[in-house]
Structure formats: structure tokens, C-alpha cells
Amino acid sequence: MVHRKTLGQQAASAGIYAFLAALSILCVLPLLNVLAISLSSAAAIQSGKVSFFPVEITGGAYAFVAQKKAFLASIAVSAERVLLGLAINMVLTVLVAYPLSKDGSQFSFRTGYAWLFVFTMLFSGGLVPSYILVKELGMLDTLWALVLPGAVPVFNVILMLNFFRALPKELQEAAFMDGCGYWKLLWRIVVPLSLPSMATVGLFTIVGHWNEWFAGILFMNDSAHYPLASYLQTVVVQMDFTKIMDVDDAIYMQSLDDRAVKAAQIFLGALPIFCVYPFLQRFFMSGIVLGSVKE
């Protein structure tokens, strides 16, 4: 390769570095602004002094949020939802993906089953019929309404299916010859070999359940059953305090800035995502891309 660069090439290269650096900073500046507001004093916020660094640092907004009953209750709902949703999604993903990863010669109905699942990605009954179904099943205001309608994530099934297919066939054939049944094969050989990709799918499932807000709004009549994402949607985004208002809110609010309280709740809502982000990032480069787009 050429080692010496002309002046013009150096300038172009420096320009690209600068542009990409600016672009990356632009992606996180709004987040920094909100974080700074959440940590600043009411006086500093109201006088417009806060930009990307906290001014007159205080944890008052966080202390206030930490004692808000509705906020804490919604975190508990979110935690239950993530755990139950993760368990159901993962078990069903593996159980559906494994038979579908077989050839037509090993599993005659494979293609028929596969189309039944794939069709649900292409067409859906829509909002009103889904709502009526959940209502008729008596699942309104229960945790089941948040986890069962999406119990089989078909996209994840396809990812796992492609991964299972890439496992060495000889291993399973040998075990099969030795009289090992499909259940034992799945549990003893396939699952242990797939733990890394299952971790990837699992992390995406956790993020998905934590972020999902619409089912909560749709299926919960009582805001006490809202997961955190739905709670934030109501309180921070729609600013609808008629549904959720703690009695002692008014007393605290006098000494705090409303924007700081909102900012603190936004930041706490995003915090779990920031925590799993380093793990996510390590996985998705290799896992998701190779699984989804094939040549």
C-alpha cells in the first residue's frame, strides 16, 4: 500500500475523522442534556444555565422519584414482566426453532409448520380484534396480557433456527444412531452448543420487554398494573396526571423543578438498557447479522 499521503488526502482523512466524531457526539448529546437537567438544582434549570453538565449538583429529583409509590410499583411490574416474558419466550423459541431446523426428510411437516409461523409476521388481525380477544380471555389487568400475545417471537425463532442448522450434523446423527431421542438430543447436545446465541436472543428479549409500553396502555385499565414503560408514557410523555398522582406529590414538587423530576425518571427508565448495552454490543455484530441475512 501507499504510505505517503498527499496534503489533500490528509485533509480529507482528517475531515472524515472530525465528521464521524461530531456525528457520534450528536447521538448522545440529547441524552447528556437530560442527565444534566436531572442532576441540577431547580434555580439553575429555571434560569436556563444547564446545558450538558449539571449545575449546582443535587440528587433531589432522584430522592423524590425514589419514594414515589407509583413509580416503584411500575418497576416491580416491569421486573415481573421481564422475568416471566424471558422464560416463556426462550423456552418456546427453542422448542419451535429446533424441529423447524430439521430438513424435510427428517421432519415431513416442517415447511407447513414454518409457514404457519412466518405468516404471522406478514399479516395480523390488527388492534381491535387483538384487544377483544385478550378481553374475552379475561386477561385484562393481568401480567398474562403483557407476555402471552407475543409468546412466540417469530423473528427470534428464525435466528435460532438458522443457528441450529449451522451446528455440525455428524454429532446429532451419531447420538441418534446410539438411540438418543430428540428430546435428549435437544437438551444434551443442541442447547449446550447454542448457549452463546441463546444469550444474544435472551438479551434482546429482555430489552424488548423492558421497552415495550403499548400493551400496558392497551390492556391495563388500572394504572397500578402499568409496567415502567407505560408509566413513563403516561406521566412523562402524555403528562396525564389524572390517571397517576400520589397524594404527597404536591408537597415535594414545591422545592423541585418539574423538568428535573421528569428527566430523572427518563434516565432511570433507560438505565437498565445502558447496563446491558456493553453485552448487547459485543453480541449483535457477530450473532444477529450472520443469522438474519444469508447469501
Binding site: 418456546l92 422448542l95 419451535v96 429446533y98 424441529p99 423447524l100 430439521k102 427428517q106 421432519f107 415431513s108 411437516f109 409448520y113 404457519l116 409461523f117 404471522t120 399479516f123 395480523s124 388481525g125 390488527g126 381491535v128 380484534p129 387483538s130 377483544i132 380477544l133 402471552l148 400475545p149 407475543g150 409468546a151 412466540v152 425463532v157 431421542g181 430428540y182 428430546w183 435437544l186
Partner: peptide
């Protein structure tokens, strides 16, 4: 092949109920 069918059925039942059910609706 029966075990392979049995593995799919729990997921299939939920998909039939929650994805195909609303289509009837």
C-alpha cells in the same frame, strides 16, 4: 417424528390463539 411435533405444539397453540384468533375477529 412425534417428539418434533410435540415440541412445536405449545408454541403453535399460542400462535393459533393470539395471532390467528384476531384474524377471525
Amino acid at each position: 417424528q412425534l417428539p418434533l411435533h410435540v415440541m412445536i405444539w405449545p408454541g403453535l397453540i399460542l400462535v393459533l390463539l393470539f395471532c390467528y384468533g384476531p384474524m377471525v375477529g
